[in-house]
Nucleic acid binder design. Structure first.
Lengths: 145, 145
DNA sequence: TTGATTTGTATCAAGATAAGTTACAAAAGT
DNA sequence: ACTTTTGTAACTTATCTTGATACAAATCAA
C-alpha cells in the first residue's frame, strides 16, 4: 500500500466505518471498536462520525450503552452521499494566489478553471452515486472487487 | 477566491501556463514572463514546465534566447493529458495505515477502495479529456465559461 | 444519588506537502 | 568572454492530516 501522509483519506475511512456499522445492523457500535478495525484512534473515528451524523447518515448516542448506528439501511446510502458528507475538498485546487489581473489570460483563467472544477466534482459525485453502501458490503463480503 | 493552501494547484497552474504558451505560438516564452501572469516565482513555473516537458507537452531550451513553447498545437493537447502530466495524486487517498487484517472488513476493504479509486481516477481523466487546450483558450478569450 | 461509560470537542504534537525563495551550475546565443 | 536562461538543489514558511491526551456532558445501572 502506498502511504501518502497528509493526504486526505477521510472518504476511505468513512466508507470503512459505515461498512462496519452496517455489519452490526440495529446494534450500536462504540468508537473504540470501529477504531480497532480502521487501525486508528477512537477520536479520529468520532470526528468522522460527527460529519456523517451531520449528513444524516448515522445516529449517535452519548453515555453508557451509547454508540453509533446507521440512520438508513445500506441500500439507501450511496458513495456520493458519503463523498459529500466528508467534504474532502476538490479534485484539483484553484490557484493559491490570484493570477495577475492585468494579463488577459490571468484575468479570465480562474473563472474557467472554477467552472471546470465544479463540473469535475459533479462528475465524481455522480460516478460515486452509482454505488450503494450495500454494494460495497457485498464486494467486501465476497472478497472480490 | 477561496484559498486552501497546501492543496495541490499544479493542475490549475499547468493549464494556465499552457494557455500562456499557446498564446505566444511558435515564439518561446521565458519562465519570468509566465510567472508574472500566474503571480508566482519563476522557479515554481520551471518546476512545472519540467513535468510538462517529460510528458512531451512542451519543449524547453536553455541559454540566452532560451525559453519554452508548446510541443503540439493546442487542439492536440487535452486536459486529461495535463492531469496525467502533473500527477496531482488521486481524488481520494486510501487509508493512511493499513486496516486491521484480523477484522473481516478491515481485511478486504482496502482492495475494494483501491479499485474504486482507480475507477474514479479514470472517470476524471476521461471527463477532462473532453476538453482540448484549444477549447480552454477560446473560453478564456471570450471571457465566458 | 452515585459511579461508570461513552460521545463530543478542544488542544497540542508530529509528520508530510506545496509553494516561495535563494543560489548556482550548465547550456546557448552574441 | 559575457550575458541570459533553464534546470535543480536546498532551505523556509504556512498549512493540512492524523494521532493523542484531556475533560465536560450525557446516559445508564445499581
Amino acid at each position: 500500500m502506498v502511504t501518502v501522509m497528509a493526504a486526505n483519506s477521510q472518504f476511505s475511512m468513512a466508507v470503512h466505518v459505515l461498512t462496519m456499522l452496517a455489519s452490526s445492523g440495529e446494534e450500536k457500535m462504540k468508537s473504540d471498536c470501529v477504531a480497532a478495525s480502521v487501525n486508528t484512534n477512537p477520536v479520529v473515528i468520532r470526528r468522522l462520525l460527527g460529519q456523517l451524523n451531520q449528513a444524516n447518515l448515522v445516529i449517535s448516542q452519548t453515555g453508557a450503552a451509547g454508540g453509533t448506528r446507521l440512520a438508513k439501511c445500506p441500500k439507501e446510502i450511496n458513495l456520493g452521499d458519503i463523498y459529500k458528507a466528508v467534504e474532502c475538498g476538490e479534485v484539483f485546487a484553484l490557484h493559491a494566489k490570484s493570477p495577475n489581473q492585468d494579463c488577459p489570460i490571468g484575468k479570465n483563467i480562474e473563472a474557467v478553471l472554477c467552472n471546470l472544477q465544479k463540473e469535475i466534482d459533479k462528475t465524481v459525485g455522480e460516478k460515486l452515486s452509482q454505488y450503494t453502501l450495500q454494494s460495497v458490503i457485498e464486494m467486501v463480503e465476497q472478497g472480490r472487487v
